[in-house]
Amino acid sequence: MAAVPVPADPAPVVEVLSADKVYADGTRALHPVDLSIRPGEFVTLLGPSGCGKSTLLKMIANLITPSDGRLRWWRQGFERVGEPGRQLVMVFQDATLMPWARVQKNVRLPLDLAGAARADADARVAEALALVRLTGFERHYPRQLSGGMQMRTSIARALVTDPNLLLMDEPFGALDEITRNRLDADLIQLWWKKHLTVVFVTHSIYEAVFLSTRVVVMSARPGRIVKEVAIGEPHPRTDAFRVTQKFAAYAKELSELLADASARGAIDL
């Protein structure tokens, strides 16, 4: 575990304490899960569809309440999230931009909703757009942007509040592989530069290996955590990492874990 940032304050950002989810119709989306996210980590939830990875992420976002168990954010309840140093944001599966608003206004939305002063907000929007290399596109409408640029707008909107914890729900799943690799590389730079803590959901093994400091492998029906794998490659990583023996070895390990889990799941059925 070379250059993974060692935090001064080891208190976890998020703790999931045997939280599970059973929907009203009796469907069990998630078995009781225990998970702890430490500051500065890039944790990926990897698994097939139906493994509850999105459910788990939405619990962390407090969009879904667990049926049993509980969660803690910075050792506190959710009501203190949003205070300085406890900023939590989420990037969704699709860009979820407001089609009627220009890029500028879309990115400024979280500040507008919080009632921030206009001039200050605009300065922060410019900063966020520069981070995702979208300077000059402020006056564009979402439909005038490519899929990748829409996603970067979405990321800029998440960064504009200067978050500490960034949650991402298969953000690049709908993009072509070339665009996805590009955005992955950008994202890892951002994470490194801004000292973010990221929880990232994906079903792509390669994306998980490339991005993560730790991969949480999940399996479906019922959703549960199979194993956690630390990716021991120093940061910041570049595309060169993708073609190394080490990368292939991690990919092999993860795909074996997934295959193994789904085989066991098949017997359960």
């Binding site: 976002a61 407090n62 969009l63 989420m90 939305l109």
Partner: peptide
């Protein structure tokens, strides 16, 4: 629905959600 979640996460008031999301 993603935008609804986004507004919720930003603690938007009922009025903000109506005027800035539902009406447009």
């Amino acid at each position: 629905p993603g935008l609804v979640d986004l507004f919720r996460m930003n603690r938007a008031s009922r009025w903000q959600t109506l005027t800035q999301l539902r009406i447009p």
